[in-house]
Amino acid sequence: MTETTSVLALRGISKGFGAVQALAGVDFEVRPGEVVALVGDNGAGKSTLVKVMSGIYAPDEGEYHFAGRPVKVNGPQDAADLGVATVYQDLALADNLDVVANLFLGHELTNVGPQLDETRMEQRAHELLGTLSTTIPSVRTVVASLSGGQRQQVAIARSLLGEPKVVLLDEPTAALGVPQTRQVLDLVRRLRERGLGVVVITHNLADVFEVADRIFVLYLGRPGGDFAASDVTPEDVVAAITGVHNGNGNAKEATA
């Protein structure tokens, strides 16, 4: 776990909200071509950690390293500029627009002045969705008529247009049926094949063991365990999530 191999690394991150200490001394990293599952109980600090990574929250303490260099991240735009893309649970797609329009929303391609270059956008949408082998029927489909899994695929594909190095997925399979979950997890694997660092926040341990290379557990805002997915059983992970092994936040034992 040397600094040079990780694309995004957080060192000693702490973040408090008033009396609540949401994160305390968290080290976290993700390497290129690696899928890290970020798990933990409700209130364990998963969302806070993701918001630190995506630049929404500034940590009270700790360092943000990107591609081996310490960086200052003041706001989501800084994180996006570095190459950290975030796909939130509530998708943020415009239902009334088609797939192409949603993919390029806010970054539309133009030809003459502000005139939309629909042809080029459609071409690039085809290329992108083709390489990801998504199950979206037509790029001119209105998003409202897509299934939950397809919408998630659109949201993830959109995050790739900015050529990110790291993709943060917040509960990508929540509220999806079995076949749709499979489609999304297939897509996560293809992100890994592209050499991206992927962080997946999830409640679903089956998903975790299906795609994750590494499992990072948060327990009450502290590191609760950092496992290679091949080395542990779901029971070990559940124990770490519920704090059975590490005795009320003594994280050293599990990470050792």
């Binding site: 998708l91 415009a94 627009l97 949603n102 929303l105 539309e108 939309l116």
Partner: peptide, 17 residues
């Protein structure tokens, strides 16, 4: 135009926009 696209986006899902 991009401006028109943004009008539809704001009307369809302001948060997404």
């Amino acid at each position: 135009t991009t401006f028109g696209r943004h009008i539809y986006a704001v009307g369809g899902n302001e948060e997404a926009a």
